[in-house]
Every structure is written in structure tokens, then in C-alpha cells.
Simulated scan of single mutants.
Amino acid sequence: MSVNKLVIVDDHPIVVQGLSTLIQAEEDLHIAGTFTTGNAFLSFLKEAERIDIVLLDITLPDINGVEVCKEIKKLSPDTKVLIISNHSERSIIMQMLQHGASGYLLKNASSEELVRCVHDVLAGRIALSAEVTAIMTRPLQNELKDIPHLTKREIQVLNMIAAGRTSASIADELCVSQFTVETHRRNLMQKFDASNTAALIKMAAEQKLL
């Protein structure tokens, strides 16, 4: 039976200890090292003969996990990366997978899920814990909403708001009262169900209306 060399990179000693205990119970896995900073691990990786898989946290004290993941794939393309994180945002999960991670699980995953994900990644599969799979398969909020119907004037006002224009300057350019512009602004917020201007601009951009 071939033994896979594994490294743990996490700045929480209790997490490292817990992961180490789980991994040590697996006969086909050998812990080649544990690190609490990204740079210390990358220095080790440059000299290491072979590392099969890295269990990597995203939040490290010295360097972002995204950068560590990119460096791993540069220094040792065959080394698999399994992210173990508290970050449950879909955008972060996507970012890590796009930068070469082969799997992603949250720190509240069960020990069985962890072991399964490690073996799946080593077998060349993409491994996601159940909760991460649920996050990835949920439709995005803006996918659930129909694109609101806007009048030509509302589109005009929306683009000016996105450009950072004030209601007064928009009113001057369109030759309407400031009250009319404020009414358009309120209607836009209502149509997009936006709580503030930043949210309005973000949603309009997501719907490709800007």
C-alpha cells in the first residue's frame, strides 16, 4: 500500500491537533509536517521531495490562502490542495477552486467527511463537503429574481447614480426637479429591493443593466 504524504497549514493549534489525530488513524496517510504560517510552509515545499496533499486554511497570519494555493500549484503542480475553512461564501469557494484547489470543506464538517474528501482529492476528484455542495448548488439571490422592468428615464437615472452623480446634478442635466429625481431613485430602490445606493448599483451590475 502506497503512503501519501500530507501537510497541514492552519494557524490554530487546536485545529492542527484535531486534524493530526484524524489523519494518524489512516494507514495510507503520513503527516509530513504542520505549519501555522503560509511562508514557512512554502519554504518547506521548495525543499520537499514530494507532498501529495495539503490541508490549507484560507486565513493565515502572514499570507492569504489564495496566494498560498497559487504558489503550491506553481512550485509543485502535482500536489493536491484541500481547503478547510470557516469561510462559507460562494465567491470564496469559487475563487479557491479556480486557483487550483481540488476540494473545499468547512471546519464544522464531520471527521468522516474530512477523511472522505482527502481520499477523493487524492484519487483525482473534486471533493466538497455536504454543506459546501449545498452552498454551490443554491441559486444566487439575483438568479431567483426576474430582471426588473425599467423605463428609459429610470435607466438614464440609474446610470447617472452609478457614475456617482448627486440628485441635484442629475436634475439639472435632465431639466427636471430634484423631487422627480428622488422619486426615480426611490422607484429604482423598490424595483431592485435594494436597501441603499451601493446595493442598487451592485444588483443592477449583476443584472447587466449598467
Rank of each mutant, 00 (worst) to 15 (best):
V3C: 09
L6P: 00
V9Y: 02
D11Y: 09
D11S: 06
Q17P: 03
Q17N: 09
G18D: 09
G18A: 00
I23Y: 06
E26C: 01
L29T: 00
I31E: 15
A32Y: 10
T36R: 14
N39D: 12
S43Q: 15
S43E: 15
S43C: 07
E49S: 13
R50A: 15
R50N: 14
I51C: 04
D52W: 04
V54W: 05
V54T: 09
L56P: 03
I58G: 15
T59F: 08
L60E: 14
D62H: 01
N64H: 09
E67Q: 04
K74Y: 05
L75V: 01
L75N: 04
L75F: 01
P77N: 12
T79L: 06
T79W: 09
I83Q: 07
I83H: 01
S88R: 15
E89H: 10
S91Q: 11
M94A: 11
Q95I: 02
M96L: 15
M96Y: 05
L97K: 01
Q98E: 14
Q98K: 15
Q98C: 00
G100Q: 06
S102R: 13
G103R: 03
L105K: 03
L105D: 02
A109K: 11
S111E: 01
E113R: 02
L114D: 03
R116N: 05
V118T: 12
D120F: 00
V121N: 01
V121C: 14
A123Y: 10
A123L: 04
G124R: 13
A127E: 00
A127H: 10
A127Q: 04
L128I: 02
E131D: 04
V132D: 00
V132H: 03
A134L: 15
A134H: 11
A134S: 05
I135W: 08
M136S: 11
L140I: 05
E143V: 00
L144Q: 12
K145C: 04
H149P: 05
H149I: 07
L150H: 09
K152N: 08
R153G: 04
E154L: 13
V157H: 10
N159M: 06
N159G: 14
I161V: 10
A168H: 06
S169K: 01
S169T: 13
I170E: 05
D172N: 07
L174H: 08
S177A: 10
S177R: 06
F179A: 15
F179K: 11
E182S: 11
E182C: 06
T183E: 12
T183M: 08
T183S: 12
H184G: 00
H184I: 10
R185F: 05
F192H: 08
D193I: 11
A194K: 04
S195Q: 09
S195F: 14
N196A: 15
N196F: 00
T197P: 05
T197W: 03
M203Y: 13
A205D: 01
A205H: 10
L210F: 07
